[in-house]
Design a protein around this nucleic acid. Structure first.
Ligand SMILES: Nc1nc2c(ncn2[C@H]2C[C@H](O)[C@@H](COP(=O)(O)OP(=O)(O)OP(=O)(O)O)O2)c(=O)[nH]1
Ligand SMILES: [Mg+2]
Ligand SMILES: [Mg+2]
Ligand SMILES: [Zn+2]
Length: 591
DNA sequence: GCCGTTTTCGGCCCGACTGTTTTCAGTCG
């Protein structure tokens, strides 16, 4: 085939969406098992740090086939997408169901089967079509089997609610709200234990809803209390064991009640992920067990239920930390007793990216340092912006020199007080369009730690962007590559570059990759961390704090590091300051 | 369509809530 190479390759997200659409169309068609296969393949594409098309171009179709959940057929489909923008089966399904399946099935209560009826009987292809049908022609639905009055009313409400929904939100922004609701539930009589579970417990970068598990002796009372919480604006469902509601800030909340004795099995179920649960249950079945939220059973006999540890143990596995439960190889690793020792929470000794009011931070260097000290750290790297970021009052070489004297003054104060804390003088230096930096080498050499980041020219071609990043990473005085994709969740797409090449450059030069923990950055994220570790890249965790309350975001960064299978030894700032400094590129070059 | 857990061919997680189809389908967690 004379295949002309497309210059703008589809990104992983759009490929994953095509695979999901295929899955939904097969569900509409009533085909069994293929939907799950396409759904798994979509998840595999999303879990990839590299562009799947780049993998295909570099390593061929076999490399796609080797990915878990992707076999020969879907590998060919992906190859076709990369080469031609689509694949035959997809086009065929879209001809049969020329319907906005993802948008329409996102409506609460509307799934593939009902959508098929709406399309085939009333020609509903879009949300607007559905609105018209429900607003102006709903009499047409009367008398259709399975479309009673209440069903139609629920669909109408579902549509309105879905349009008002906020969508996925950064974990760090929603966590305080979820904790407030959880605290209220702890006050309900009969309640023994309350835990926020689902994607919160797994520390996913964004959360789609709030899932709360409650151990209680009085489930009915709990349900009544849930629906009368002040934050609740709508009740989706209310049964003896599960209540589902919409909250004031546009998120849904699922509360699951369970008998206290069944805590472990229920926690396992409600923590997920769905893919992890399915895999675990399938494996349990192969051993002759049945696993559900009430326990692990052999016939009628309950084999394990009290704790998650018991359940994993009974299945012959190591305990799998929640952050790994994505069906990305953790079950196989746990069976082989080869899970990594994940970096513990609370194990950071320093914060590698902190701003002061010398640029766009809110506090003085000293005040920020004291806040960091109080929060339990023993050092921060002060990383104010440099001059190309004019709107932040970025520092030039002279200002950096003045700032150094201030840093030393603060450090002397800590020493005088006998407090084990120091400010490391660094900067967040801009990578210019051509990969050069906006500060002279002489000034960089005088700093103790230099981080670089992209703050401009976000939309260069992947080739240009890669060349730009390589030049910065290869600079001998650059220690850390900050927020590597520069994405801002909900606001700015990640920059496009050749991930493999850039990570190899980091590994080769000893440049550390940053996990920026600010909630709408989370950059590097889980997928990129995992790929970086496979390439031998070293990491740091930073908060990008501009105010003292941001310092606690470092635990989110650790959560993401854990999701990327990182251990303490992979993260430079789990070390005390001397060893941290000695492990930076600039020091290693000297020794 | 994928995969090796019993199986390279045969099986694919399991349960809650809703509406209305008197026995279950659809949707969702
Ligand atoms: N066994 C099983 N468990 C499921 C299924 N769907 C969801 N769960 C469990 C695992 C999920 O983590 C948990 C909560 O469901 P959610 O839909 O809220 O998903 P989750 O919180 O993982 O992600 P989210 O951020 O809400 O999109 O319920 C399923 O199909 N089967
Ligand atoms: Mg959830
Ligand atoms: Mg949920
Ligand atoms: Zn920055």
């Amino acid at each position: 085939m004379a295949h002309h190479e497309r210059s703008f390759l589809p990104d992983n997200e759009s490929i994953a969406r095509m695979l999901e659409e295929t899955s939904l169309c097969y569900e509409m068609a009533g085909v069994a098992f293929k939907p799950r296969a396409y759904e798994r393949a979509a998840a595999a594409v999303r879990a990839l740090a590299e562009d799947v098309c780049a993998v295909y171009r570099k390593h061929g179709r076999e490399a796609l086939d080797a990915l878990p959940g992707i076999g020969p057929s879907i590998a060919q489909h992906i190859a076709d997408i990369c080469d031609h923008g689509s694949f035959a089966e997809y086009e065929e399904l879209k001809r049969r169901f020329p319907v906005a399946v993802r948008e329409l099935t996102a409506i609460e209560g509307l799934g593939p089967k009902r959508l098929r009826t709406l399309y085939e009987m009333f020609g509903v292809r879009t949300i607007d079509d559905l609105k018209t049908l429900l607003e102006k022609k709903s009499h047409k639905l009367a008398g259709i089997p399975g479309w009673g009055e209440k069903t139609v009313a629920r669909l109408r409400e579902g549509l309105a609610l879905t349009q008002k929904a906020q969508g996925r939100q950064p974990l760090g922004f929603i966590l305080p709200l979820a904790e407030r609701v959880a605290a209220r539930l702890r006050e309900v009589p009969g309640v023994r234990e309350v835990q926020i579970v689902g994607s919160f417990r797994r520390k996913k970068e964004t959360v789609g809803d709030i899932d709360i598990l409650v151990a209680t002796s009085r489930p009915q009372l709990l349900a009544r209390e849930v629906v009368s919480l002040p934050e609740v604006t709508y009740v989706h469902q209310q049964g003896p064991s599960r209540t589902s509601v919409r909250l004031t800030f546009g998120m849904d909340m699922d509360v699951r009640a369970i008998e206290p004795e069944r805590w472990g099995a229920a926690l396992l179920y409600f923590t997920g992920s769905r893919a992890h649960n399915i895999h675990l249950r399938t494996y349990a079945e192969s051993l002759g067990y049945k696993l559900n939220e009430y326990g692990l059973f052999q016939g009628k006999r309950c084999v394990a239920v009290r704790t998650e540890e018991e359940v994993y143990e009974a299945l012959g596995m190591q305990y799998i930390p929640p952050e790994l439960r994505e069906d990305q190889g953790e079950i196989e690793a746990a069976l082989a007793h080869k899970l990594p020792d994940l970096v513990p929470y609370g194990s950071l000794q320093g914060d590698c990216q902190v701003h002061s009011n010398w640029t766009d931070g809110t506090l003085s260097i000293e005040a920020m340092a004291r806040a960091a000290y109080e929060s339990g750290l023993s050092y921060i790297v002060l990383t104010d912006h440099t001059k190309a970021l004019a709107m932040t009052g970025g520092l030039d070489e002279a200002a950096l020199a003045r700032q150094r004297r201030e840093v030393e003054k603060v450090n002397r104060a800590f020493r005088r007080e006998g407090r084990e804390f120091r400010v490391v003088h660094g900067a967040e230096v801009n990578i210019l369009k051509d990969g050069t930096l906006d500060v002279s080498d002489k000034a960089l050499a005088r700093l103790e730690c230099v981080g670089v980041g992209v703050h401009s020219y976000f939309t260069l071609s992947p080739k240009e962007q890669t060349r730009r990043l390589l030049r910065a990473i290869e600079h001998p005085l650059v220690d850390i590559f900050f927020h590597p994709t520069a994405r801002i969740i909900g606001k700015r797409e990640p920059i496009a570059f050749d991930v493999e090449t850039v990570l190899e450059a980091c590994a080769r030069t000893g440049t550390a990759l940053d996990i920026d923990s600010y909630p709408d950055r989370i950059d590097a994220n889980d997928a990129l961390v995992r790929r970086a570790l496979q390439k031998g890249v070293r990491l740091v965790v930073s908060t990008d704090s501009h105010a003292p309350q941001h310092l606690s975001y470092r635990e989110l960064g650790l959560g993401q590091a854990r999701r990327g299978w990182a251990g303490a030894k992979d993260i430079l700032n789990t070390q005390p300051v001397d060893r941290f400094l000695a492990s930076l590129k600039r020091s290693r070059a000297l020794s």
